[in-house]
Amino acid sequence: MKTEDQRLSREQVGSIVTMLRLTTDRELNCSECLQHVGEYAETRLAGKPLDEILAGIEQHLELCPECREEFLALQQILKAGL
């Protein structure tokens, strides 16, 4: 049956529930994330504390798989020393 074939997996339902847990009234969007993710990556790499904006970036990265994918790639580049 079509619906059964397309049923959500445990991981997908878990993703929805996790997203809801992380949802707040004020969130940064992807454009704001792109503007600050470089600073966030450098701050994390240096082991420094996050200010309010960077804490917002961290929350957005938990919610947004696309920005998270790009952040992880950026980390790779920074770790390579470029």
């Binding site: 470089g38 600073e39 450098e42 696309e66 994918e69």
Partner: peptide, 22 residues
């Protein structure tokens, strides 16, 4: 004009490049 100097310029630019490519 949006570069605010809060990270290295190249890090900021790499983030834009990754966004473009992905």
């Amino acid at each position: 004009d949006q570069f605010a100097g809060r990270s290295k310029f190249t890090t900021w630019a790499q983030a834009i490049a990754l966004n473009t490519a992905f």
